[in-house]
């Protein structure tokens, strides 16, 4: 009886752990919340009781270039889905003119002694209204990526990684789904639709759960980070990368601000 209770208890812990690991961070929820239960292989287990927190903002120091206008008239379905003039999603600037959205923030270095279970829940990317949703997101090595075409028109999803295998698959029918798994960590893997040249997205593939895409106000939060010294990197599709080093102690919270400068030659 005692043995059975032990097994039930372990199973319960594993179930909670799996749910906490969750899917990819295609939602704005920080993927780092999954970290506390993740430990596998020879690495250490993250102790939730001592974990700290890194939060902050990505900001642009100056006026962001105007997003390039998109002409969707080559496909009536795209035209119908987007009645108003459309533009690229390159620069998502907050109302205050400073906060920068769609910046991918992640721990680049400092987690070597930890290992993490691979989420079984799929990360998701949807082709809807002739756009990729989300435009920037992160997922884990070995985690399935569900690719959906919600549009009543054809799309091809073409990934152009450098370290992982390139793929290009057609999804001509509305509702079609496919799944893909990346084998190696890589920041970033560009996605493009060769049918609709304006459609592009970026996915970061990492072997840990400490990453997040800044929201429309430019904010991010990486909770449950074990005490230690970390290199954080913030990536923007046109403005490049910014790096910061941060040390957090037990239960400590630190703020980090990444400042991007608009370059004169920046174009969409």
């Amino acid at each position: 009886m005692r043995l059975r209770n032990t097994w039930v208890g372990l199973l319960g812990i594993a179930l909670v752990g799996t749910l906490a690991c969750g899917g990819g961070s295609s939602e704005t929820k920080p993927a780092a919340s999954a970290a506390t239960t993740a430990a596998a292989g020879g690495g250490s287990k993250v102790d939730a009781a001592t974990a700290g927190d890194v939060k902050g903002m990505a900001v642009i120091d100056g006026a962001a270039p105007t997003n390039t206008a998109i002409k969707m008239n080559a496909d009536p379905v795209c035209m119908k889905a987007n009645g108003t003039p459309q533009s690229q999603e390159t620069y998502m600037v907050a109302a205050d003119g400073k906060g920068l959205g769609n910046v991918f923030v992640y721990v680049k270095d400092g987690l070597d002694k930890f290992t993490f279970d691979t989420p079984t829940e799929s990360a998701k990317i949807d082709q809807k209204d002739c756009r990729y949703h989300p435009h920037v997101f992160g997922m884990r090595v070995g985690q399935p990526l569900e690719i959906l075409n919600s549009d009543p028109t054809l799309h091809n999803i073409h990934a152009l990684p450098k370290d992982n295998a390139e793929f290009n698959n057609g999804q001509p029918i509305q509702g079609m789904k496919m799944s893909h798994t990346f084998d190696k960590p890589e920041v970033m893997v560009p996605f493009k639709c060769d049918v609709h040249g304006w459609m592009n997205a970026y996915v970061a593939v990492l072997n840990h759960p400490y990453f997040m895409v800044t929201d429309k106000d430019g904010k991010f939060d990486l909770p449950n980070l074990p005490p230690g010294t970390y290199t954080l990197e913030a990536w923007h599709e046109k403005l490049g990368t910014q790096v910061a080093t941060v040390t957090i102690g037990a239960k400590e919270s630190k703020d980090v601000t990444f400042t991007f400068k608009p370059v004169a030659t920046a174009t969409n």
Binding site: N156, D194, V195, H196
Partner: peptide
Amino acid sequence: AGLSVPDWPTSYGWNMFTFPPSMWVAN
């Protein structure tokens, strides 16, 4: 537009000559 039809010799799974013209959109 070179990869806008990702398969060959088929076109999105159709025989090239029966690929519906309604799908010849954009690139």
